[in-house]
Lab assay of single mutants.
Amino acid sequence: SAVVMEEGSPGEVPVLVEPPGLEDVEAALGMDRRTDAYSRSSSVSSQEEKSLHAEELVGRGIPIERVVSSEGGRPSVDLSFQPSQPLSKSSSSPELQTLQDILGDPGDKADVGRLSPEVKARSQSGTLDGESAAWSASGEDSRGQPEGPLPSSSPRSPSGLRPRGYTISDSAPSRRGKRVERDALKSRATASNAEKVPGINPSFVFLQLYHSPFFGDESNKPILLPNESQSFERSVQLLDQIPSYDTHKIAVLYVGEGQSNSELAILSNEHGSYRYTEFLTGLGRLIELKDCQPDKVYLGGLDVCGEDGQFTYCWHDDIMQAVFHIATLMPTKDVDKHRCDKKRHLGNDFVSIVYNDSGEDFKLGTIKGQFNFVHVIVTPLDYECNLVSLQCRKDMEGLVDTSVAKIVSDRNLPFVARQMALHANMASQVHHSRSNPTDIYPSKWIARLRHIKRLRQRICEEAAYSNPSLPLVHPPSHSKAPAQTPAEPTPGYEVGQRKRLISSVEDFTEFV
């Protein structure tokens, strides 16, 4: 048969007729292969192709491409040299491709048809291009793949890379869960390890502090508590009631339409708007009261037996805890006409967050109470924005700035309102402590230090009264110190430094 060459192609190359033996071998191979691939376009007849790359030819070592076609129900084999250009295909004639002069020997084609199974398996396991790669995943090629499931790999992101949580363990979102698992493993320790309690022994800490320079003076030496005195035992138990972190309780009120001037209507609300609910979820963490331990979680007086509701929101960081007394989460009882059960919590909070959804101005004093010092007013606006402002009593104007209003988005509203309420509550605590000038409020841990110092002074006084020969370590507060001759004046800087060093040991009130 003659071949018409394309323009620009090399000279004529004689194409030899395939021997009958080659056709029989390739026909047997075509019957084993699956003929249901995917359909081509209507211009080209339905056909199945599979590209198999052999590394070497037997005796020649030339890479070839073998295409199996099922045109007219008769499979045909096409061998081509890759750099050459194939002729145009037609549905009426068999596929013809040019070969190099080196394939002119018909014996070479017979060798190609009689490829060993080793070469076929190696060509099938190679990388296939384009559409033949999808075909190689079918059941027909499963014989050339190794048996057994593939090893499982770690989760992959859409980009093909490992997620960040699997790369950096410290930033993994499941870090707290692993800590819980470690605690569970520790709890399952053997009885021999049960006595080993991690941490620092208080006796060891005391020993280090006792021999430090801070205890060089007799006034700073630790003293032993009497065991037989019940009054001192009660004082030590009272110390446990003062937490070592700051605590805040903040009221949250929802004002519906037409309720801006009605205290009873505001306290009777059992739910609010959708934006109000989203605002609550951002204030803190939802907790169930019956599962809380009052000595570990500050509840601000809420009952854990269901008297004040089942849930509330709280927030904490390293040095403070805040609980929100939310009116809509507290039960509304029919027998309580004046809502006294709610007001006994909300009316005693220094700061209230008022979500004013009424469309009218909310005035300070609508919720009557002796300790309502500051109101954080949240007014929802259009386009997911809110107006946040402050209202306070006249005696609080020096501590709280009420002249600045803020426009905040719904997303950042819980954070801004919480921070403003916490700052206002700190100012309210300082303002409330002014009624007792001898006990200015600095912080909870300073209050613990003052309680310890008062307890020490009482013990020293009782020891001096029981044994008059012992001198008083600290003179009583009601006694007057003996007159001392004025010492020589020293520079102001040295006096300030000495006073600062003494105050650092005794108390921190002056620095606050």
Rank of each mutant, 00 (worst) to 15 (best):
A464M: 12
Q391E: 07
I353V: 04
L238G: 08
V255Y: 02
S352I: 06
V351L: 01
S352C: 11
D217S: 12
F373N: 10
M396F: 14
I407E: 05
K444W: 10
N372L: 07
F232Q: 08
I367Y: 05
N425W: 02
P380W: 00
V378S: 01
G309F: 08
V495L: 10
A483L: 08
Y313W: 05
R344N: 07
I223A: 07
S389A: 08
G369E: 06
N269K: 02
P222D: 14
E218R: 10
V354R: 00
L267V: 04
F362L: 06
I446P: 13
M320R: 02
D317V: 00
N348F: 08
C460W: 14
G300M: 07
L387S: 05
Q484M: 11
E218H: 09
D361A: 07
P331L: 03
L329G: 04
A483S: 09
R448P: 13
F324H: 02
D361W: 03
G492D: 12
F279W: 01
K363Y: 09
S231F: 09
L283H: 00
E270C: 06
D318F: 04
S403E: 08
N467Q: 13
D318M: 06
V335P: 09
T379K: 07
K249D: 15
P442T: 09
F508P: 14
K480M: 10
V404R: 06
T328E: 03
E278M: 09
T509Q: 11
L253R: 01
P476A: 12
L364A: 15
P442I: 06
D334R: 15
E397F: 06
V505Y: 12
L472Y: 14
I266V: 06
Q497H: 10
R456C: 10
S504H: 10
E218G: 08
T509M: 06
K406N: 15
P414R: 00
G301H: 05
L449P: 15
G347V: 15
N261W: 03
G256K: 04
D217C: 11
D303K: 14
N412S: 06
G272F: 02
V351W: 00
M396K: 05
K363N: 13
F324K: 01
D240Y: 03
P476D: 15
V354W: 01
C392A: 14
S231E: 14
A327V: 05
R450L: 07
K343Y: 09
S358K: 01
S428R: 02
I407S: 03
T312S: 08
V354K: 00
E397N: 07
N372Q: 15
Y383L: 06
D401S: 05
G398D: 13
G496L: 13
H248D: 02
E360A: 08
L264Y: 13
S229G: 11
D341I: 09
V400T: 05
A481D: 12
G359L: 04
L470M: 12
S229I: 08
S352Y: 05
A265P: 03
I250V: 04
G300H: 14
D240G: 05
G309K: 15
I377L: 08
L267P: 03
K363Q: 12
N436F: 06
T490P: 13
A463F: 15
E360M: 09
D349E: 07
L422M: 06
N425F: 03
T332H: 09
F350P: 03
P468Q: 11
P442G: 09
P476F: 11
L381N: 02
A405K: 11
V473A: 14
P442N: 07
A463W: 09
S409K: 02
D295M: 04
R500V: 12
A464P: 11
H316G: 15
E506D: 11
S443D: 08
K499V: 09
H432K: 05
K290W: 04
R275N: 00
C392K: 02
G309C: 13
R285H: 13
K499D: 14
G365N: 12
V376W: 01
P294F: 13
H271A: 09
S260H: 11
R448K: 07
C340I: 14
I319E: 13
V354S: 01
F232T: 09
H248K: 02
F311H: 08
S477Q: 10
A327W: 04
G256L: 00
Q429A: 10
D401I: 03
G282V: 01
C392G: 03
E307D: 10
G282F: 01
N356L: 00
V297L: 09
Y493S: 15
P475L: 14
E228G: 09
P437S: 07
L364G: 15
L302V: 14
L422C: 05
V374N: 01
K342W: 05
L381V: 03
H271F: 15
E228P: 07
W445V: 06
L238N: 09
F373P: 03
V236P: 06
P437A: 07
A424W: 03
S409C: 05
L399R: 02
P442M: 06
V335A: 12
V354N: 00
P468A: 11
A251S: 07
